[in-house]
Amino acid sequence: MTTRPTNSTPSPFPTPPGADAYRLPTARGDFAVVDSPVATGVEPRGVALLLPGFTGSKEDFHLLHEPLAARGYRVVAVDGRGQNETGGPADDESPYAQEELARDVLAQAAALDTPLHLVGHSLGGQIARAAVLLDHSPFVSFTLLSSGPAEISESQKQRVKLLHDALTVMTMPEVWAAILAMGPPEEVGGPARGFGGPEQLRLRWLNHRPAQLLATGRQLCTEPNRVGELAAVPLPLHVLSGAYDDTWPVTILDGMAVTLRAQRTVIPGAEHSPNMERPLPTAQALADFWDKHGRRD
């Protein structure tokens, strides 16, 4: 198992106890990560790479690090290209094509240089799926966390369209002000929700590259169904979600799991972000799945 890089740099975003925030150098550039080691005195069982969703960031997994470390898992959560603390062009959408983002994931896996349990939340799940379809060899398992088989629901498409229209005529600070004007963060959702206080959420939004939001929002609205392709990949698969989800209804996620012959976990009391809403049972479900499938050495 690889050791963690030591080039930690100060970050305005909180890290879990014992975790390092640093820039992971890869063949495709540097990526901001939060990397937490296995808990002291616990036998190491594996390493997990976690990819956030649309408008999200590595901080969305903050509450999973400690319980997973206690189960023997090193956790590396990453900001993808153009997300939060990872750089990218502000206006050119071409680097944010899904295949480009998928190749970024493979570069991150190569840089970590150890077999990985891959987890993708929402948009991150579809990017992770594209990476697995390009090359599954770096991974020992793949969990789709609140991430569906194809395009998002019609209600969520309307939210993405509103954001797209705003981004084409307004600055990022102006869009943020408009988001908050819609109501409290718990009602608005999206970029106004996440781990951290209001100023950290605002900073995360301002750090996002508009081109990344435009390109990936379009992907969510047009993603084809690639479940049949994924079903042919020789990896243990896991479909994990909350008990309610407006982005991909739970019945759709149930059907996807059947087609994939995947383990299916539903977290009671959670919606689209079980990693934040019910982190302890979510961590338990992940670790139980990983324990079952072990790791390649």
Rank of each mutant, 00 (worst) to 15 (best):
F195W: 13
P16L: 13
Y244V: 12
R193S: 11
V105H: 06
P5E: 12
P14K: 11
S146Q: 12
Q83C: 03
L180R: 14
S146A: 15
D79R: 06
S146I: 08
P210R: 08
L240V: 10
G56I: 00
A150M: 06
A130F: 02
R296V: 04
E93A: 09
L280M: 04
V258A: 15
V227M: 13
S57L: 01
L123C: 07
V33A: 12
L134C: 07
F195H: 15
L237E: 05
D254L: 11
F61D: 01
D20C: 05
Q83R: 05
T86F: 11
E151T: 09
A19C: 14
A70H: 09
R209W: 05
R209Y: 05
L280V: 11
P249R: 02
E271S: 10
L214Q: 08
G190Q: 05
V78E: 13
M276E: 15
E99P: 03
D245V: 03
T6D: 15
L134A: 14
H164V: 00
V250I: 07
L286K: 01
R159I: 01
P14H: 12
T265A: 13
T251V: 14
F13K: 08
G197Q: 08
A150R: 12
Q98H: 04
R103M: 14
N225E: 14
P268T: 01
D113H: 10
L145G: 00
L201H: 04
A178I: 07
E174F: 01
P14A: 14
F13T: 04
V42A: 10
R261I: 00
G72P: 08
G120E: 03
R202D: 06
